[in-house]
C-alpha cells in the first residue's frame, strides 16, 4: 500500500519501503520525499512483489523481521527473479551476525533503528551510486 504522502515521478528514482510496522511505513516515505526522492511504502513482502513497482524501484529499504516473508527471504526471492535492486536493510534489533551475513550476500546498506536522516540519506546515495 502506498503512503498517502508518496509521490511518483519518472524523473526521480523510486525508493520502495517494505516494513510491517506502521510507524516506519508511514513516516519514511515522507522523509524520503523531503529528500527529493519518490517513495512508496508496502506493509509486507508479498504486497511489494505484487505491486508492479519492482522493476521501477531503484532502491529497496527493507525491514528484516516481518511475518510470513522476512526481509532476507524477499532478497532471495528478488535474486531468484533476477532483479538486481540495491537493498538497504533496516532493523530494530542489533545482531552483528545477521548484519555481516546480509552485507556479504549483497546488501547495499544496513541501518539500525532508530537511525537519523543523514545516515539514511548517505546509505541511499551509496546504494544508488553502486548501480
Amino acid at each position: 500500500m502506498a503512503s498517502p504522502n508518496g509521490r511518483s515521478g519518472s524523473a526521480r528514482p523510486l525508493l520502495s519501503v517494505v516494513d510491517d510496522d506502521e510507524s516506519v511505513s508511514e513516516s519514511l516515505p515522507d522523509l524520503l520525499g523531503e529528500f527529493g526522492f519518490t517513495a512508496r511504502a508496502f506493509s509486507s513482502a508479498q504486497e511489494f512483489l505484487s505491486s508492479g513497482c519492482v522493476d521501477e524501484t531503484s532502491c529497496l529499504i527493507l525491514d528484516i523481521a516481518m511475518p510470513c516473508m522476512s526481509g532476507p527471504e524477499l532478497q532471495q526471492e528478488l535474486k531468484r527473479r533476477g532483479k538486481k535492486i540495491p537493498i538497504i536493510f533496516i532493523t530494530g534489533q542489533r545482531d552483528e551476525t545477521i548484519r555481516a551475513r546480509l552485507l556479504k550476500q549483497g546488501a547495499a546498506g544496513f541501518l539500525l533503528k532508530p537511525f537519523n536522516d543523514a545516515a539514511l540519506l548517505a546509505a541511499i546515495k551509496t546504494a544508488l551510486q553502486a548501480t
Partner: peptide, 12 residues
C-alpha cells in the same frame, strides 16, 4: 525491536 520501531518513527 518493540522500542526501536516507535523511536524510529519518531526520529523520521
Amino acid at each position: 525491536h518493540e522500542v526501536n520501531q516507535p523511536l524510529s518513527g519518531i526520529l523520521t
